Amino acid sequence: MKKIISGAQAAIEQIIAEGVTDILSIPGEHNLPLCDTLLDYPQLRVITARTEQGLTYMSNGYSRVSHTIAVPIVISGPGVTNSLSALADAYQDSVPMVLIVTQAPLNQIGKGAFHEIKDQSATISSIVKWYKRVTCVEEIPEAIHHAFLNAFGNRPGPTAIEIPLDILTQKGHSTIYSSAIPFSLKPDLFSIEKAAQLLINAKKPVIYVGRGAVISACEKELKDLAEWLEIPCFTTALAKGVLPDNHYLNISWGGCKYGMIKTFFQQADVVLVVGSSLDDSDARRFSLKFPDKLIQIDISNENMNRDYSVSVELTGDAKTVLTQLLSEIKQHPKQNNLSTKNAIEH
């Protein structure tokens, strides 16, 4: 139902509708209407910092730890430039954030307004996954709703909404949207069956786990699959903790730049990749060699076959795909992978 509210109210009410409980912000010249409006919503906790760089890095860490979307609110100009490094880091590591950034009034943009930079929109959009500047109050709730969907949809990452100062103070008819879960692809049954057969018949399989497993919260499903087939698991730095460090199948000893870990992959006949794009930071810079039988689970099909040839692509949420995969594997007689177990012990 539409109601007449200010732009600042529309923004805060849509943020609340998305399930947000904490706002990270530094009050400044162009975001004071938002900060003042926050006082009318005591269910929100406001966390502040000394600089926008610190604030957006706090937001980055908040999202990683809480597994929710962080919402930093910053001013235009220096607030934006101070936020760029944290946003770039979030983009690289698939950290979902929704940045609310203010802007000079619409009729002052491009005329040397206070805190104005040459092209703020281009600066932000070059760093984040999705971006939109709103030009009226009515656009605010829908834009924020889409920012949340895009922050978690497909490959997660930071998004941004730019709201001019005059739009924050104007009133208009606004519709608040209910929070929604982004659509996620599921692999076809044939691909699941093919991957299951490769793992069942493998002599020296290895599981390679990236941050996507953390985002998916598939700790139980990963552990169940690894234990059922007795497959050793290597976790990247961003996936540390998905499988307990003291688990007998965890081979993440010191990272993959050391010879012992590289040997596991060189000798493996099948590798299952869970939630890693196998990019430079995860694999390529370590000169890892994977076998021809490479299975990759990833939320985004854009991450498939980028640096390594994949024989079975399983596009979808890691938790869902691992559940499907283990269900298929359990329809076949269980085989103890003695060669793998002996390799770990020796």
Rank of each mutant, 00 (worst) to 15 (best):
I15E: 07
S85F: 00
P78Q: 11
T48L: 04
V20D: 02
T102K: 01
V65L: 15
Y62A: 13
L24A: 09
T48C: 15
D93A: 14
I75D: 15
L55Y: 06
V80S: 07
A88G: 03
P27R: 01
Y91P: 02
A88E: 00
T51R: 10
I23P: 09
A88R: 00
L84Q: 08
S85G: 10
D22H: 08
T81N: 05
Y57R: 03
D40E: 14
S94I: 00
L24N: 05
I12N: 09
I69F: 05
M97D: 11
G28N: 12
V71C: 10
V80R: 05
Y41C: 08
H67F: 12
L38W: 06
L84T: 05
L34T: 01
G77E: 11
D22K: 12
P33Q: 03
I69M: 11
I100G: 04
S59V: 00
P27F: 03
I73K: 03
I73H: 08
G61V: 05
D93R: 03
E52G: 02
E52H: 02
S63Q: 11
S66F: 05
I47C: 12
L24R: 09
I23T: 02
N60Y: 13
I15L: 10
V95C: 12
D89R: 03
T81M: 11
A11T: 01
C35L: 14
L87R: 00
M97L: 14
D36Y: 11
A49G: 04
A90H: 10
G54H: 02
A17Y: 00
Y57P: 04
V101Q: 14
I75A: 11
D36Q: 07
E13I: 06
V80P: 05
L87D: 01
I16C: 05
G61Q: 07
P27C: 03
T48W: 04
H67M: 05
R64F: 12
V46A: 04
L34D: 04
C35Y: 13
T102V: 12
A49R: 06
A88M: 08
S83D: 06
Q53T: 01
I12V: 14
D93P: 13
G54S: 10
P78Y: 14
